[in-house]
Design a protein around this nucleic acid. Structure first.
Lengths: 149, 149
DNA sequence: AGTATTCATATCAATTTAGTAGGAATTAAA
DNA sequence: TTTAATTCCTACTAAATTGATATGAATACT
């Protein structure tokens, strides 16, 4: 039950923009791709999704590129993942085939409760961390400015 | 990023066995299927996986069926999910393409840490609950003996 | 022998994932 | 005003995964 590589590319590029772009200094897709290790053409599409989700801004033309649309402290990791994978990205309960009116009963109710608790735990771990938190960890822990997987 | 329906069927049937089977009283696949709402033929394969994982036991022949292989108090929800989806079922970090020798650095290291925390939170929520816990919740909360989604 | 059950293997359609290709639109610079 | 550099848009594709179904063999009770 892994998150997609696309979500990973989205997080990498968002973190890369937090580290290498600013309102004055845009980052080119090709540079983000090189630093994060993502395929450039694929990353183009991912950055497009982040733009449509309001997480990054872009400028076209020969000095164009991307930057974060708001401070890194106000962008949660969960926001980025949802932008890449869709609004249900953090929903882990198996798809239900029928929707019970009045809510589930019996064993289904116990499982419903279980999934709800697991989703809460996961969301707390992902929505509770911002790009600023990640950027700080990068600078504190090593000083290495890019990814170099 | 949902768990598969197969994992759901596995959990439903394991819980169903906790409620409706015992060392003396086996439950037929067709009955488990009826109570849980799973397709009988598909459930057959799922129960086969649970058997090979050592979670259930079976007997063939005209009085055959399934039962839990050990007390419900010693079967964790995570065990059942792993039996259905494979050993990486609770791994949520995106598949990595290259394995860095010496571990990840820079941004990759920060993300590695993030995924590790999220996986710990998820495992705590799923491995920390047993089939006995679920069975107790079913009996306490409603008395309805089956699923009736 | 006959019936009821689990067990094993093969097959399949739909969806998702992880890309690639080609070019249009836009902006800055020469 | 052309040229170059960039984002943006649409379409396509191969491989893997998911959620099944089909057929029949093996086993055990009556």
């Amino acid at each position: 039950m892994r998150f997609s590589l696309k979500a990973d590319y989205a997080l990498r590029s968002a973190l890369d923009l937090a580290l290498h772009a600013s309102p004055a200094q845009l980052a080119r897709t090709s540079d983000v791709a090189r630093r994060t290790g993502a395929p450039a053409k694929f990353l183009e599409a991912v950055l497009g999704q982040l733009r449509r989700a309001g997480i990054v801004e872009s400028e076209r033309g020969s000095r164009g590129g991307h930057r974060l649309a708001r401070p890194a402290s106000r962008i949660g990791v969960g926001d980025v993942i949802r932008a890449a994978e869709g609004p249900d990205a953090l929903v882990i309960r198996p798809a239900q085939r029928r929707i019970p009116s009045g809510g589930p009963t019996g064993g289904a109710r116990a499982l419903h409760q279980l999934w709800t608790e697991a989703e809460r735990a996961l969301s707390a771990a992902l929505d509770g961390v911002t790009l600023e938190d990640l950027a700080r960890r990068v600078q504190e822990s090593s000083g290495v400015p890019d990814f170099s997987i």
